[in-house]
Write a protein that binds this DNA or RNA. Sequence first.
DNA 1: TCCATACCTCGACATACGTCTAGCTAATGG
DNA 2: CCATTAGCTAGACGTATGTCGAGGTATGGA
Lengths: 118, 118
Amino acid sequence: MPKSLPTIELSGALCCPPVAAGVVSDDDALEVALRLKALADPVRIKLLSLVLAAGPQGTRNIDLARELQLTDATVSHHLGQLSRAGLLLATRQGASTFYAADRLALGALVTVLDPNCC
Amino acid sequence: MPKSLPTIELSGALCCPPVAAGVVSDDDALEVALRLKALADPVRIKLLSLVLAAGPQGTRNIDLARELQLTDATVSHHLGQLSRAGLLLATRQGASTFYAADRLALGALVTVLDPNCC
DNA sequence: TCCATACCTCGACATACGTCTAGCTAATGG
DNA sequence: CCATTAGCTAGACGTATGTCGAGGTATGGA
């Protein structure tokens, strides 16, 4: 990674032609790759499944940290990665922040990668 | 990544319950994450789309290198990552190696991530 | 007001990773 | 047999990343 990857806005919905539909542009490849990067970590996969299991109400940092046996700082880092990639929705409620999965965003990412999509 | 991720066999087909179906085990999270890691790079996304576009016959290292403006060594590295993750099928033919996309493997990965799968 | 709780941010550390050059092996063609 | 071509491997380089401890900020309750 000699040329450092640019930091781009990912919170919007991913919308680009499926990877199997033809050769993707550099920009689209970057968008897809950055979102995948956000997901390409075992802790974040578990995190996502925990958040999905919690339903639309979401889960708090501290509960996830307890479940994953990690510090709240580390969990905050991972939640930030997923949120910046547009995969989580965060809602403050008093002193707590509840994180819920953005199923539409995850679905969009999956669709772009689906080899049987077209 | 202080605890280095273990190196595990990924060439077989991914087979684990969807992430949305419940909390995934540590082992399953690792399997999914490692395969996603193999895909989470803009060059490899373009690579995959080029290989998919080439059809079942596949493409050669050198042609991909020319298309991507990278050295053959770098392309070889990326092809290795994707192959080890089970996403590419390599077949030698004389002095050349043809790489084709393993659509089933990619489909399996996509299915595991699909939030609407269950 | 004061303390506890939940969360975030910052800095540091070790490790992983993308890219290149150089050099090797193996197949092809004269 | 030699030259060329395709591909891989090894090593080096700079950068990115996961984790933690420490400390800050805001909310809520006694």
